[in-house]
């Protein structure tokens, strides 16, 4: 049974149609790569699922509910932006999450904090962008959520940190959960995907198992992505 169902989803920004009659179903127990060029609607789709955008047309169901209190309780969302207040320290953020999310595991969060060598008492405003991203990933992955929505979790970090983030993500991922991982750094992460969605300017270009892509096209996800979204540049 699908844990997320999207039917005929349309979303406009002004006159610009960002999601065009999009229909998708996601099953639990999978890691899905949500791939597409910049501005193709990946973040918008995740924001709708996370309950941050309400002005859309169509149906979006998470665990059978339109985005609401129930879906927010079972969804762990990592946005592109830094969403913690600058004065907060990791321990303050842990208190905050522990208060609102019953599935937040503080012990696991502290373990990950040590693994990433972050100081639990360092204010977020004093952290580098990479450190802030690591902390947010810790908060998101320390929850035993049914759905993980990760929007560019490795956007602004160095390759070594990317590997660390991937390791943590895989280690903490719950086998029976769904993880949707939006990125355009495909080569770095395609090994963890069970399936991928290619989103091309609001439209579904491809939704396939990674193994099927390798068998059917004889290509890696990264190679197929480059082919599908190739653009000609005249010099």
């Amino acid at each position: 049974m699908s844990i997320i169902e999207v039917k005929n989803l349309n979303k406009k920004f002004g006159s610009n149609l960002v999601l065009n009659d999009l229909s998708l179903k996601f099953e639990a127990g999978k890691i899905v790569g949500l791939l597409g060029p910049n501005g193709c609607g990946k973040s918008t789709l995740l924001k709708i699922m996370a309950g941050l955008t309400s002005d859309y047309e169509g149906v979006v169901l998470l665990d059978g509910h339109s985005p609401d209190i129930h879906t927010k309780a079972i969804t762990s969302y990592l946005p592109e932006k830094t969403y913690l207040s600058g004065w907060m320290r990791p321990i303050d953020a842990f208190d905050y999450f522990a208060d609102f999310y019953s599935d937040f595991d503080r012990v696991k969060a502290l373990e990950m904090l040590k693994q990433f060598r972050l100081d639990e008492k360092m204010p977020i405003k004093n952290m580098s962008k990479g450190m802030q991203e690591k902390l947010q990933l810790i908060l998101v992955m320390a929850r035993k959520a049914k759905i993980y929505l990760l929007d560019e979790p490795m956007g602004g970090v160095d390759p070594a940190t990317r590997s660390a983030i991937l390791d943590v993500t895989l280690k903490q991922y719950q086998e029976d959960s769904l993880m949707i991982f939006a990125t355009h750094l495909i080569a770095d992460v395609e090994k963890i995907f069970d399936s991928v969605v290619f989103l091309g300017f609001g439209e579904l270009k491809l939704f396939e198992e990674v193994d099927t892509i390798r068998e059917k096209y004889g290509k890696s996800v990264d190679e197929l992505f480059r082919e599908v979204f190739a653009c000609s540049v005249s010099l």
């Binding site: 209190i69 969302y77 932006k81 830094t82 969403y83 913690l84």
Partner: peptide
Amino acid sequence: KNNYSSEAYLTHTLPVH
């Protein structure tokens, strides 16, 4: 700041009415 800037991405994903 808490409801409509970047912090809102946390505020509005809390499981509260």
